[in-house]
Simulated assay, not measured.
Amino acid sequence: MTVSTLIGLESEPLANPSASKESLVGLDRSALADRLAGLGVPERQRRMRVSQLWSWIYVRGQTDFAAMTDIAKELRAELASHFTLARPDIVSEQVSVDARANGCSPLATAREVETVYIPEADRGTLCISSQVGCTLTCTFCHTGTQKLVRNLTAGEIVGQIMLARDRIGDWPGATAADTRGLPDSERKITNVVLMGMGEPLYNFDNVRDACAVAADGEGLSISKRRITLSTSGVVPEIPRWGEEAGTMLAISLHAVRDGLRDELVPINKKWPIRELLQACRDYPGLSNAKRITFEYVMLKGLNDSVDDAKALVRLLAKIPAKINLIPFNPWPGAPYECSDWEQIEKFAEVVNRAGYASPVRSPRGRDIMAACGQLKSASIKQRASQRLAAPA
C-alpha cells in the first residue's frame, strides 16, 4: 500500500499574521517564546509554557488549544484567538493498489504539493515536498515539467508530517480509521525523506528549520539518521547542509558522463559531476556509518549498460556510499523507457561485486502516479491527462 495525499496551500505563505491566524506548527521553542511574549506571558513563565505547548503540539498532536488542560484557561483562550494548529488542507487522497480515493475536489490552480506515505512491514517512510513545483527541469522527472510556484514555509513542511500522523493514527493512543498495510511497529512513520516536489537546497533555511523541529528528541523525535535530504546537486549548499542540519544525504546522480547528465539533470551544466562528487567527499560526518545514497534512475539504452555500471563504481571510489537503482516510472509524455529487468540485474551485479549495497527500488504507487519522479500538482496532472485523452 502506498498513500498519496495532495495538499492545497495558500497562494502565498502567511505574511501578515494580524490579517489571519498564524499557525504555531513548525515554530521552534524560541519562536514559541516570542509568540507568548506577544500575548503578555511573563518572562518567568515562558519556558514552562513553551514546554507545555511543545508537548501538546509535537508529542500528542493536539489540534485544539481548549484540550491543553495544564495551561491556564485564560491563556488557552488567548492562544485560540490569535493562533491555530490547523493542518494543511487535503485536496485529494489516493491509496495505491486498490485505487481508493478520498476527498477529491475540483482544482483551479497549481497550488498543491504531494506527500506520499510508503509503509512496509517494520517501518514507514514519508516522502515530503519542499516547494510547490520545481525550479529545475530534470527531463526524466514529472515534477520538473511544472514551474516553480513558491517555496514552502517551515510550518508547511512540518505540517506534512503532522497531517500524515493524523491520517494514520501515529500519535500516542490514536488509531487509524483504516489500518490496512500499516507497519507492525509502535511508530508508523519511522523515516522521512525530502524527495517530494522541489529542490530542498533551494529552500535551505525553511527546510533546515523544519528538520530541526522534526528531529527534536522531545517532540516528533525522528532521528537525523532517519531523515534524508535528496538534492540534484546544489554543490555550494551541500557542506553547509551537513554542518547546519546533519541529516543523511542523497544525490540524484543518474549518469556517469557530464554530457548525458547535462540532459537529464541540467543543473549539471553549472556544477558538473567532478565538483558534485568532491562536495560529497567533503560532506561533514561522512563515514561508513553515515553513507551517502546515490540515486540512479534506470533508462533503457541511455545509462544502463555494463560499462555505465563500471564507470559508476570508478566515480564513487572512496566515497562511503549506497547506490539506489530506480526503475524509471513512466508519466504522460515521458521521453524515456524503463530499462529491461534483465539489464537492471546485470547493472546491479557489477555494482554489488564492487562492494556497494545497490538495492533496486521496488516501484510503489505507480498506479496513482505517486512513484519516484511522478509527483506533480493534481491540477497539472489533470490537464495533462485531458490532453492525452483528447481526440486527434
Rank of each mutant, 00 (worst) to 15 (best):
S11W: 08
E12L: 14
E12R: 15
P13A: 05
L14A: 02
L14Q: 06
A15V: 14
A15T: 14
A15H: 13
A15R: 15
N16F: 12
N16W: 13
A19N: 13
E22K: 04
S23H: 06
L24Q: 00
L24C: 08
V25D: 05
V25H: 03
G26L: 02
G26Y: 08
L27R: 02
D28I: 03
D28K: 13
D28Q: 15
R29G: 07
R29D: 07
S30H: 15
S30D: 15
A31L: 11
A31I: 04
L32G: 14
A33P: 02
D34P: 00
D34G: 04
L36Y: 00
A37L: 12
A37V: 09
A37N: 10
G38S: 10
L39M: 10
L39Q: 01
V41K: 09
P42V: 11
E43Q: 08
R44D: 09
Q45T: 03
Q45H: 13
R46D: 08
R46N: 10
R47W: 08
R47F: 12
R47K: 15
R47A: 15
M48K: 11
M48Y: 12
R49A: 03
V50T: 09
S51P: 11
S51H: 11
S51I: 11
Q52W: 02
Q52G: 06
Q52V: 11
L53I: 12
W54G: 05
S55M: 09
S55D: 09
I57L: 13
I57N: 01
Y58D: 07
Y58N: 05
Y58L: 01
V59C: 09
V59W: 09
V59R: 14
G61M: 00
G61L: 04
G61W: 09
Q62G: 10
F65L: 02
F65A: 06
F65M: 05
M68E: 09
T69W: 00
D70V: 13
I71R: 03
I71M: 04
I71P: 14
I71D: 00
A72T: 04
A72K: 15
K73I: 07
K73E: 14
K73H: 06
K73T: 08
E74C: 00
E74A: 10
E74L: 11
L75V: 10
L75M: 11
L75Y: 04
A77I: 07
E78Q: 15
E78C: 04
L79Y: 03
A80Q: 03
A80R: 01
S81H: 10
S81A: 13
H82M: 07
T84R: 11
L85G: 04
A86M: 13
A86C: 07
R87Y: 13
R87A: 02
P88E: 01
P88W: 06
P88S: 00
D89G: 10
D89T: 04
I90Q: 02
V91R: 05
V91W: 00
V91L: 12
S92L: 12
S92W: 10
E93S: 15
E93K: 12
E93G: 13
E93F: 03
E93C: 05
